[in-house]
Design a protein around this nucleic acid. Structure first.
Length: 115
DNA sequence: TGACTGACGCCGG
DNA sequence: CCCGGCGCCAGTC
């Protein structure tokens, strides 16, 4: 199965998250939606489960800061390498949240040809 | 069709 | 903070 336009947008946004910073699935969905492509947190999760290997997927966590059980172990390793501490199953999202310029996000999607 | 299933999120208790 | 319940939506059976 090839990624849909929405999936491409999700992957591009996740690829833009700077090392050491985080976004929740819902945040990614909002950024994509603001670019005119319908998207929900659930769809972001499904996209990453299929194509996440090509982007820094560990920088996306649940809105509560909890890391999905399914990828908890590998995620901890990557996060630690970026200086992000975990208490075992969650991170401090408020402290590490990324606040991108919506215009810039959109610009990247256009440059990459997705839009 | 319809039921079931997620790397989710918000609200109440 | 944990848990249950409900909404969400594309994919699978």
């Amino acid at each position: 199965m090839n990624p849909s336009v929405r999936d491409e947008c999700v992957l591009e946004v996740v690829a833009q998250i700077p090392a050491g910073n985080l976004l929740s699935y819902g945040d990614v969905a909002s950024l994509v939606a603001d670019c005119g492509v319908a998207c929900t947190a659930r769809q972001v999760a499904r996209c990453l489960s299929h194509f996440g290997s090509r982007v820094p997927w560990w920088r996306v966590v649940q809105s509560s800061g909890t890391i999905a059980e399914q990828v908890l172990v590998p995620a901890r390793g990557h996060l630690a390498a970026e200086g992000i501490v975990t208490d075992g199953r969650r991170v401090d999202l408020d402290e590490r949240r990324w606040f991108p310029d919506p215009e810039e996000v959109r610009a990247v999607l256009v440059r990459s040809g997705v839009l």
